[in-house]
Design a protein around this nucleic acid. Sequence first.
DNA 1: AAAATATTGTTGACGAGGACACAAAAAATT
DNA 2: AATTTTTTGTGTCCTCGTCAACAATATTTT
Lengths: 166, 166
Amino acid sequence: MNKEEQIMKDFRDLFNKIMWLDSFKMKISLKNYNPSEIHCIEYIGQNADSNVTKLAEYFYMTRSAISKLTKKLIEKGLIESYQKPDNKKEIYFRLTEQGKAINKVHEKLHEESQERDKAVFEKVSEEQFDIMLSFAEKYNRHLDAEIEKLGVDITSGFMVGIWMQK
Amino acid sequence: MNKEEQIMKDFRDLFNKIMWLDSFKMKISLKNYNPSEIHCIEYIGQNADSNVTKLAEYFYMTRSAISKLTKKLIEKGLIESYQKPDNKKEIYFRLTEQGKAINKVHEKLHEESQERDKAVFEKVSEEQFDIMLSFAEKYNRHLDAEIEKLGVDITSGFMVGIWMQK
DNA sequence: AAAATATTGTTGACGAGGACACAAAAAATT
DNA sequence: AATTTTTTGTGTCCTCGTCAACAATATTTT
């Protein structure tokens, strides 16, 4: 395996493990909610006037999936929908008090994860950070251009399954 | 957002885009097979005496899921199972000729992806490579230790959904 | 202003994969 | 050697997310 492959494999493993650990913790603290629900709540909590389409774009999921997800969150009383007087099509979401409470618990877990991995990041110098950031940004721009070339809407359903939550 | 968060976000985006592009291409060239089937074939092609358990560990999936997947691959005539004379429990897999053909097509796609991203990697110096590799390895070891602490089998079903294919 | 097109959100059918329970075989313990 | 424990693979049920088709509203074109 060459260095390019090695690096991508290592980072993939990294994210798989992080996801595994995060969902492990979440299944203990937030038994009745799955990761998708939690991340959806998180996004709605942070972004005013979230709607199905914005959520779909953010999570690389279909509008269909988000539509069902938000419906469930409404039924569970975690979010509520509202509309604007001048638009009868778009439906926005905001957190209920109960949703905000869940969000707090999740934020706490997030902080714990940061604390857990603090030791690793402390040993990374500014310069090393910048090298990695620069690489990731360049690679991202390159891929954006490649996706652009195809001229396809990324939420129109060319998906594999659950994507990595942002 | 601090640098730690920024770096993780950028790499997550990176992988989401790579997965999206890869599956986009695969849906065109390998219409009748989904990514899981292809990656399963890839693994079996590269690893002698693959079985359900090894595949599950490699792909962070449950044995149950792999069992169904391999069954389907057998039905499609892409792999075949065999056993060893001294073991009546373990069931191994190997590619059929048809499976090998599919694998070839996939390898070609993989090379095309490498070619696509070549320009990005060419601009990375040896030193920069090593910095990123070192970071990923340290972080991986850290997470391995954290997972170890929990004392849970990673294939025993504490999953989120589809994990990133290795 | 009317017609064509695009956007937004929803539904039902479907498929992939996890949860859980189980049987059979192998390995470890006694 | 007999019993217990672990490993391996499978089957059933359930959830989640895509796909495809659709209605309703908004936007653009003519």
